[in-house]
Structure formats: C-alpha cells, structure tokens
C-alpha cells in the first residue's frame, strides 16, 4: 500500500477506499494508514464530502428557448411522418415516398434556415424522390389569431385564390425537371433574407400569396401548437406523382409536405376549402426559371 518514497496513500487509493473498490488486503492497509495519519484522514474526509458538494449544486432550469427548440424539433418529426388522413391524394397516387434526408434545425433561425437549406440541397442529390414543402398563404383558419402581416397576406391570397379559380392554368408553365435538378435549383435560389425562393416571385401576383420553402427549416416555431387548429382544407397536386404529408397551419398559412415518387415534375398544388370545395390558394412546386 505505502511506497518507500511516499509513506502516504494516494488520493486514488483513498477514493477507491471510499467507493469500496479496493481488495480486502489493500483496504485493510489503507485503513491502517488512516488511523495513524491525520493528513490522509483529512483528505479522506474531504473526498467523502465531495458527493454532497456536487449534490448541493442546484439543478439548472431548462431555458425556454431550448424548450421551444425541442418542441419544434419534435413537431418537425411529427410532420415528417407520412400520415395525412385528411389530405386528398387522388391526384397524387400514393406510393411509398422517399423520406427526406434528416437534418435537425438548430442555431439561430436565420443561420439555421440557410444551413439546412444548403444541407438539404446537398443531400437531395442522392435522393430519388422530390420533397417539397408548400406554403399556401392566407388560409382562413377559422378563428385562429393572425398577425396583421398575415392578415395582409390573406387579402393577397384571396385575390390569388379567385384568380386561380378562374384560371388555374394562369400560372407560369414550369419546365419538367429531374428530381435532382429540381432540388438543387430550388435550394440554390433560396434566399434566407427573404424567407423564400426568389425564383417563385416572378409569378404574376403570386409572390405575396404563395411562398415555396423546403426542408426541415420550413417548419418555424409554433407548428405544433398551430397545427391543432387547422385541418379544413384539401390539397391536390397536378403534374406530380406523390403524396402529401400532414397538413399543418402556421400564422395563417398552411404547410404540407409533398413527397413525389419517381422523376419529379413541376407541380401545381391547390388547396380547396373543405366547406365548399372552392380553391382557396395555390402554389407551384418546381423550377420557376
């Protein structure tokens, strides 16, 4: 136990003694030494006090920012699960869609959008399916509180919706592209400062009412809470084979994930009111250039 050049026990031996992991022989030797050595006895007592010292540190509280971040991440996972029972997929034959490459949002919102957008673009190169998130602005949630900004978007959307109703073909024709091209092009156009894809703003009168976004970063905070209030719409897609994920509403906008199978084609997604089956908003998915 003791060593010629140092008659004392080592701190490690004392700690092992305390933890009860010494062999019986070593334990006896250490106890013997402790009986005659005040210095080691003192250290032993201090070691014995460490667990209480550590336990005395109050538990940290979960910061609200982290709590909501976790909520968001789980909401994004929920939305990612392809279970959209209220979504009409008649125009989009249901096949097993590829799941989007998984990335979690983190860092500040601004940074996060940009980083994830880039990550999604990179990952999409190896993905066969087209996965796009479609924002349909200004959808009436029936009593959900909306910011004044969302209210403004509502008006634009109403106009766009009536335009769509009259002239669903009025949207700019989009070229068909392969899924890989599609994903890369869209993401390279993504403008985090504007929260959308500049390539879509060239559509006449649509930039206020329709925003395309993609990737997990397209789920801002509050999805989980807002999603409970809104399910009253039917989505149909034309020009693409695939199906929609669950429909969620955020700040007066609807968000649904469109997962396409096979070669991706530019698509038009239209939301119809569940009350009267009138089209209420539309968005285009595809390369708008």
């Amino acid at each position: 136990m003791s060593r010629p050049d140092n008659p004392h026990t080592t701190t490690e031996q004392l700690a092992d003694l305390l933890e009860g992991v010494l062999t019986p022989a070593d334990e006896e030797a250490a106890q013997d030494h402790l009986r005659g050595c005040d210095a080691c006895r003192t250290d032993y007592d201090l070691l014995a006090g460490l667990p209480a010292l550590l336990a005395s540190v109050p538990a940290p509280e979960l910061p609200p920012a982290v709590a909501s971040r976790l909520d968001d991440a789980i909401a994004a996972e929920d939305a990612r699960r392809d279970t959209g029972p209220r979504v009409d997929t008649s125009a989009a034959p249901s096949r097993s869609p590829r799941r989007e490459p998984r990335r979690e949002p983190r860092r500040s919102d601004r940074t996060r959008r940009w980083l994830v957008g880039v990550a999604a673009a990179a990952a999409a190169v190896v993905s066969v399916g087209l996965v796009g998130d479609v924002w349909l602005s200004g959808f009436d949630q029936g009593g959900a509180s909306e910011s004044s900004e969302a209210g403004g978007a509502s008006e634009g959307s109403a106009k766009a919706a009536s335009d769509d109703a009259r002239s669903p073909r009025g949207l700019a024709a989009l070229p068909s592209v392969g899924s890989e091209t599609f994903a890369a092009d869209v993401d390279s156009l993504y403008d985090p400062a504007r929260g959308g894809f500049p390539g879509t703003s060239g559509l006449p009168d649509k930039d206020k009412s329709v925003t395309l976004a993609r990737g997990p970063d397209a789920y801002p905070g509050q999805v989980r809470r807002a999603a409970r209030g809104c399910t009253a719409a039917t989505l149909r897609a034309s020009g693409v084979d695939g199906r929609f994920g669950p429909l969620v509403a955020v700040d007066g906008r609807l968000l649904a994930r469109l997962a396409a199978t096979g070669p991706a084609r530019a698509a038009t997604v239209t939301a119809y009111s569940c009350r009267d089956q009138e089209p209420i908003a539309a968005a285009q998915v595809g390369n708008a250039r």
Binding site: T10, T11, E12, L14, A15, L18, E19, T42, D43, D45, L46, L47, G49, L50, P51, A52, L53
Partner: peptide, 15 residues
C-alpha cells in the same frame, strides 16, 4: 473524485 479533490477539496464540508 480523486481528480476533483485538489480542485474542490477546499469547498467540501470541512475544507
């Protein structure tokens, strides 16, 4: 704990 002792011994009860 052995590694903590030199750092925290003074804070432990009796230190």
């Amino acid at each position: 704990r052995a590694n903590l002792l030199p750092l925290l011994g003074a804070w432990a009860p009796g230190g």
